[in-house]
Design a binder for these strands. Structure first.
Length: 271
DNA sequence: CGCCAGGCTTCTA
DNA sequence: TAGAAGCATGGC
């Protein structure tokens, strides 16, 4: 892994492979947008502008420290995707998906943002999910030069349902508040959920109102580094019944979440 | 206008 | 313990 200073920013090379376009836009994160080949997003309250540069990633206007401390973990650069993918390739569907989509990584997002975003996602469509999250940041987050940070659980915890109603989140508004209050109070501690077994952490997350198995699994997979979590939404249910009527292959064990992401790409590709 | 959306909770049998 | 209804809103 090599970080070098270029005149446009910080260049990251030899960190493993990534299909940036798919990884940032395959349903795991809702706040990245691309403009003229540059991906723009906010992680841990900092804005990042990323583009592909030869065989590496260029972080525009970034410091090596911020890339090292924030983006390397976010992009799971310490995880050996080469070996994960070679395990998945024992399955023919995965093998062709990998040759088609390249290396799709599971982002290591902020747990609170992940939990809150997927509570909002329930029985909702993608444009509206993105809209509600964007409005939430604009109204309750901190102002940054090009956007707004995602509001903390503490910030949302002190709001009333009425104050939250400007988001038009509907029946999810009380769920958001329940989650925010229990995270802000310290009742839910993400660092502990990250250490626990997936099943155990899932049980705890599901005690939050509006969090069932699917939302819990998304939080576990995209925010708490549990690669064995396997969120089943309507798309995944349909495609997995079609591709794997007898259940998932044994070689998925432990990395079901990565397989899920490829299945999502395959399903979207078929439409 | 009507159907539907990356579910969840609650109420039934 | 499984299945259905109801939920609030707006994209298409």
């Amino acid at each position: 892994m090599v970080l070098t200073n270029e005149n446009q920013g910080v260049l990251l090379r030899d960190f493993g492979k990534i299909n940036l376009d798919i990884t940032l836009d395959c349903g795991q994160a809702f706040r990245w947008s691309r403009d003229k080949g540059i991906w723009q997003g906010i992680v841990r309250g900092q804005e990042f502008f990323i583009s592909e540069h030869n065989d590496g990633l260029l972080f525009h206007n970034a410091t090596p420290e911020s890339v090292r401390e924030i983006m390397l973990p976010y992009l799971a650069c310490d995880t050996d995707y080469q070996s994960i993918i070679s395990r998945l390739e024992c399955d023919a569907v995965m093998s062709s998906a990998v040759s088609r989509f390249g290396t799709v990584r599971i982002l290591r997002q902020e747990p609170w943002e992940t939990l809150c975003s997927f509570i909002i996602s329930s029985c909702n469509n993608i444009p509206r999910i993105k809209g509600i999250i964007k409005n939430m940041a604009t109204l309750f987050g901190s102002r940054l030069p090009h956007g707004h940070s995602f509001p903390s659980a503490e910030r949302l915890a002190c709001l009333s349902v009425e104050e939250l109603s400007v988001l038009r989140a509907g029946y999810r508004a009380p769920f958001i508040l329940d989650a925010a209050r229990r995270v802000a109070s310290g009742e839910i501690i993400f660092s502990e959920l990250e250490r626990l077994e997936t099943a155990e952490a899932r049980q705890i997350l599901m005690t939050i109102k509006g969090v069932g198995k699917k939302v819990a699994d998304c939080t576990l997979l995209f925010g708490l580094n549990h690669l064995d979590a396997f969120p089943v939404d309507r798309h995944i249910k349909r495609i997995s019944e079609r591709l794997y009527p007898d259940g998932l292959p044994d070689c998925f064990v432990g990395i079901e979440g990565v397989a899920q992401q490829y299945m999502f790409c395959v399903a979207r590709d078929l439409q």
